[in-house]
Design a protein around this nucleic acid. Structure first.
Lengths: 338, 338
DNA sequence: GCGTTGTCAGACAGCGCTGTCAGCCCGCTG
DNA sequence: CAGCGGGCTGACAGCGCTGTCTGACAACGC
């Protein structure tokens, strides 16, 4: 049926092993022989059977992306970056949904390892919280890289954005516009990012001698609805905040909706800021001032690190922190007298 | 290293073939034997090596999702549905980005087939436009199912929404609110959906004896920006349309932004309608009246059809059309005197 | 001249599983 | 009680590839 390595070998007049050498770029093949084999492969339209390669070599050439299915917007970007990197290196990518509450999902991941279906993993938040799982992978010497992880202290590789700095910069920007009563909508507390962004917020307030008022912070979970409800609460307080900083863009979009509902003009009477710079940020009105998190680049880097450690290289730098940058759009403006 | 079928067989005191039978749910295994084998697998934590299974059986147990990378919002939903179905059947899913302009991407798909990496494909628009590719797959007896395809006449399986009916229903609804000057923002003409929705729009106008005015139709490409620019054009015409129907939600969000820009109140002075009911529809303000396209269910159905035909069943019904339903939210209202 | 080293190539086993086929046992029929 | 067929099980080959080992041959130093 399909063309096999044997067909190529016969056609080129060499052994299958020699063809295999050519396929895998191994040394000790004469240029003339290599040429014949390449021509034969071309001629016959040969492509190696991956399952056979995997079985014989014991490596699957597949990366697993472990993610929690609530954060699809984010995962989307990560996925694209991984796909790109995997493609370059001839790797495949497997999607591993994983709910941190469900032990079955963790079993599934270990099963993939036992089956040799996956060579290594990328963990996205909050899945890296499952320390027992990480420990098991570590003990089985299965490499993985964490994206924006919870625990930055342990000596395991990760790539993360500078959430603290992003929170700090945005707050400083709002302060520079004259805002002092600034609301904050917290993100999902399972994500380290929520805490870091809040810490950056607090630090900037402190640096400018503006007292931190806990009553201006509402809980959220990174979803639009929690921004909407948080906005409704904050905008009923008296005096009203003149700016609100949400832990991500989805919630900031919720804030915009709440302001529209209450007839509060943005940015004239209220400035709204988000975080992440997802496409949504430009699809709401007014478009969101936000902090751009280089998600794509981070995922790309994570994939590169993983692929390198899969090739046997040991990673010289375990921890990579990428800068987050302010993106100023239409949803923020100078404070006007209340 | 890892537990193999041989280990399980030895542990259970049977042959490897019998273990294989249990794994694959084949008939002619005594209940007592099955019990012993299951217990042994459990005890040893056995999971079959997929590569070996694939090599031996000649089937990869992987589906390919062929998509164009412009439509991530849509693909996201499709992907989730496929993932779910694949998981149930023990299949994997491979993402195959495919630009209809790039022959290399088509070669890649054929390569996956040659390599036996993928057993069958789901095509999402506009990738099903590549007829030569479909023909090659067909001649190699590689099954595939098309989602919302271009050509509904050829006897190849597909699952599609009733775009015509959706366009008709929405238009009728807008007419029932008293609107007569209704703008239309066209979608990407490579997608059959754009044409069908427009046809439904026209048919509803005709049924209500409202003349169709081509000057109220602007070109678009399903992206937010084209809705924004289309809105700017349509809202400058005189007399202004009192309602605009966009071919999808992203463009409808662009319309909202254009209206906000020009200080036109929605829905008081302008009704805006979208199509698809993606999450964005509820994250803009006012939330979008739209047509819910059962994307998830369609993708699910497509996956089930593909999996069934992979199992050797012949599909009794090749074409499935699922209804689209009106979802009324805040962006539409009765026409007020101009 | 011989041993040594380096380059190149092929024979062969085996990765972990499934398909094929042969064979056993048991209950049934005539 | 022989003959038969269906339920159940195992031996064995082989899927397509790679790792290991062995060997041929040329070039080199002593």
């Amino acid at each position: 049926m399909a063309v096999t390595i044997g067909d190529v070998a016969r056609f080129a007049g060499v052994s299958t092993k020699t063809v295999s050498r050519v396929i895998n770029d191994e040394p000790f093949v004469a240029e003339s022989t290599r040429g014949k084999v390449v021509a034969a492969m071309q001629e016959l339209g040969y492509a190696p059977n991956i399952s056979a390669q995997r079985l014989a070599s014991g490596r699957s050439h597949v990366l697993g992306l472990v993610f929690h299915s609530a954060a699809w917007n984010y995962i989307n970007i990560v996925q694209r970056a991984l796909l790109e990197e995997c493609h370059l290196e001839g790797y495949g990518m497997l999607m591993n949904p994983c709910d941190i509450e469900r032990p079955a999902d963790q079993q599934e991941i270990l099963r993939l390892v036992a089956q040799q279906t996956v060579d290594g993993f990328i963990f996205t938040p909050p899945c890296d919280n499952i320390t027992s799982l990480l420990e098991q992978l570590q003990s089985q010497r299965i490499p993985f890289v964490r994206l924006a992880p919870r625990d930055c202290q342990v000596p395991l590789p990760y790539v993360a954005p500078d959430d603290w700095q992003g929170g700090y910069d945005m707050t400083q920007y709002l302060l520079s516009l004259g805002h002092e009563r600034i609301g904050f909508v917290m993100g999902n507390p399972d994500h380290q990012a929520s805490h870091d962004r809040l810490a950056g917020f607090k630090a900037a307030l402190e640096a400018h001698q503006v007292p931190f008022d806990p009553s201006l912070v509402t809980a959220g979970d990174f979803q639009f609805e929690s921004g909407l409800s948080g906005g409704r609460v904050l905008l009923e307080t008296n005096p009203r905040p003149t700016a609100i900083f949400a832990c991500n863009d989805d919630m900031a979009a919720g804030l915009l909706a709440a302001a529209h509902e209450l007839g509060i003009a943005v940015p004239e009477a209220l400035s709204v800021a988000g975080f992440d710079d997802v496409p949504l940020a430009q699809q709401v009105w007014p478009s969101l001032t936000t902090v751009r998190q280089p998600t794509y680049e981070m995922a790309q880097l994570a994939a590169q690190l993983l692929l390198r450690s899969l090739k046997g290289e040991s990673l010289e730098t375990l921890h990579h922190v990428l800068p987050a940058t302010l993106v100023i759009r239409g949803s923020t403006g100078p404070r006007t007298s209340a």
